[in-house]
């Protein structure tokens, strides 16, 4: 399967481990990722916060390049990037006024063809859980995790049309296919504070703290995420939140890689703030 890959800015710096593990896991599953050539930042929170047209335009350029590359699928792993690309695609397809504006900005036809998907959706809906389970050589037995979806992978539903926005199950099912156990908890789709980490940290400490406490209460050993913003907010600020959990916040692609038999180093496990090594060791999932 050929897929246009939009890594986004975070995956080139703060969240390298997400990029590493994504590429490894996709390659393992014969998903041929072709990075969108000369992609630009999706503008994330900033652009849509202050200029709607710019927000759509930035993502439209990336979609347009993917279309030029003859790709009919664009995949992102950052929930923020995914949401911006998906929203732009939705606007271009459903809002003739915006489509015209985009064509003016790009000075080329608006990209209507590429379908935007988050990696999680691609894996669950196209690769399939059975095919993924077949690749598991080291089942994550005994690992009790909270699957955390956050906001933008499933919302807004009318744009995203994937999973259930209130009681999502796709990540739980994927983790179960890897042999892990997932806890029942209430905050799987609540917000972590998103893009306010720097500009209004209190918001992240408040909302992220609620997510962490809920996962802890539900008996999770770690939280599994599918977004670098969620990862950063939950992983790096536990101390500032006044929590002494040291709870590992792991990308789902990293756990997939482990279950597929890759080494922690190949998956950037060591780049996580709250190290999951002790936890993984106690379950016999890593040696060292």
């Amino acid at each position: 399967m050929n897929v246009a890959y939009f890594p986004g800015c975070s995956l080139h710096s703060m969240s390298k481990e997400y990029d590493m593990s994504t590429r490894l896991v996709c390659k393992h599953l014969n998903i041929n990722l072709q990075e969108i050539e000369d992609w630009n930042c999706c503008g994330a929170t900033a652009a849509h916060s202050v200029d709607h047209s710019l927000a759509v335009g930035l993502s439209a350029r990336n979609l347009s390049i993917a279309e030029d590359m003859k790709m009919d699928k664009v995949m992102a792993v950052c929930a923020g990037c995914f949401s911006r690309l998906k929203t732009a695609s939705h606007e271009i397809r459903n809002n003739p006024h915006m489509k015209a504006e985009v064509e003016q900005m790009l000075q080329s036809p608006a990209p209507v063809k590429p379908e935007v998907e988050h990696l999680l959706q691609l894996l669950v809906e196209e690769t399939g859980l059975e095919a993924i389970a077949q690749q598991v050589v080291k089942p994550l037995r005994g690992l009790r995790v909270a699957a955390y979806y956050g906001c933008l992978i499933t919302r807004p539903q009318k744009v995203v049309q994937f999973d259930d926005p209130e009681q999502p199950v796709s990540l739980d099912n994927l983790l179960k296919a890897l042999g892990a156990e997932t806890v029942t908890w209430g905050h799987k789709a609540e917000c972590c504070g998103g893009g306010y980490a720097a500009s209004d940290t209190d918001i992240v400490l408040d909302l992220g703290g609620q997510v962490l406490k809920s996962a802890k209460k539900a008996g999770a050993d770690a939280i599994v995420v599918a977004c670098p913003m969620c990862q950063g907010n939950l992983d790096m600020r536990q101390k500032a939140m006044g929590l002494d959990f040291r709870m590992p916040i792991i990308y789902f692609t990293q756990l997939m890689g482990l279950a597929f038999g890759y080494k922690p180093g190949q998956l950037g496990i060591n780049k996580l703030f709250n190290s999951p090594t002790a936890l993984l060791k106690s379950k016999g999932l890593v040696k060292e």
Partner: peptide
Amino acid sequence: KLFHELMLDQVQKIGRVSE
């Protein structure tokens, strides 16, 4: 607002964000 502006400044200058 400042954070939004600085981020978009970068995007306008280099097309990407360096965290």
